[in-house]
Computed example of a mutant assay.
Amino acid sequence: MKTPLSYVFDNDHPEAADRHGQLPAILDEFTIARLSSLGDLTGLRCLETGAGGGSIADWLARATGPSGRVLATDVNTRHLPPSPSYDVLVHDLEKDPVPDGPWDVIHARLVLLHLPGREAVLRRLASALAPGGALVLEDFETTFRKLVLAAPSPQAAELVDLYHELLVERVLPAHGNDPTWAGRVPAAMLEAGLTDVDTVIHSRSWPGGTAGALLIAANIAQAREDFLAAGMTEAQLAELGRLVADPRLLVRGHFTYSTIGRRPSA
């Protein structure tokens, strides 16, 4: 019997808290701008899947107000605050039915690219929308090279390039991740019957010591054995840990594709 693929960035890992601190710093401003583009959210029913540390669920709770409803789900909710301003549900997007809706807004950030059954999940989420409701999917597109914008040495740049190459070609695919998924979401939404499909692509630079660079260290910490199995050495991993804190390093964040599609009103 085939062993199920495991999620590479498990919330039970001791380093997971670092990721849940860095990802909001990298992405929340962009995500909030995209959700705000949907219009007034007051009173709406919102489903936040793969809620992580809950920063976007918390923002949605404030945006929808007391007359709205926000449900935050994750396969492991341990990083959500103990008394959140929204409802919480332990939930597996691939195995469990979509929580009862219908939903006016469904948001998933850095979730579907990790799920082998991502196309089927997208269709189920689209079907759970209320008429006129919006599905907002945000994922990294990691196949683009040239991550290093500046480095303290050519050898340092080569080391970051090696990390990125192994992450995209070996580490993530071994756990069911599809680095090309973000660019395929618009077509998948249209095939699922959604309309007004719109994608905005975001990225910016991050010097060593800031969230976008330190995410490299968090990735290595959580997938250390995978990187070693892919051919990196302990010395290389240690050097990367030092390098991502060096302000002379300047990296480009992964391109984030934010795609919105709406269920037809009639």
Rank of each mutant, 00 (worst) to 15 (best):
V148A: 07
M232K: 03
R69D: 13
D12A: 12
A223G: 02
K2Y: 12
T31M: 03
T180A: 15
L47S: 11
G101L: 12
G132W: 09
R19H: 02
L60H: 07
G39A: 11
A156Q: 07
T233I: 05
S36T: 14
T210V: 05
R78T: 04
N76S: 10
V148R: 10
A134T: 04
D18W: 00
A211I: 02
P131L: 13
P116E: 00
D198W: 05
G50D: 01
E239P: 01
G21A: 15
L167S: 06
A238V: 07
A57F: 07
A245G: 06
T42N: 12
V136T: 07
T142L: 11
F30D: 10
T210G: 03
A151E: 08
L135N: 03
P82Y: 11
P99H: 15
E239L: 01
A151L: 10
E119I: 03
T210Q: 08
R263L: 14
A245M: 02
R78E: 00
P4I: 04
S55L: 00
A229F: 08
L190F: 07
H107K: 07
R19W: 06
G65C: 06
R145W: 09
A229N: 06
G43N: 12
T199E: 08
K146Y: 09
F9N: 01
R109W: 04
R184T: 14
N11R: 05
P14G: 02
L166K: 14
G21F: 02
A213L: 03
L147H: 13
P84H: 12
Y7G: 02
M1A: 13
I260C: 10
P14K: 00
V197R: 09
Y7I: 00
V88D: 04
V88G: 01
N219S: 00
F255T: 07
E158A: 15
A223K: 00
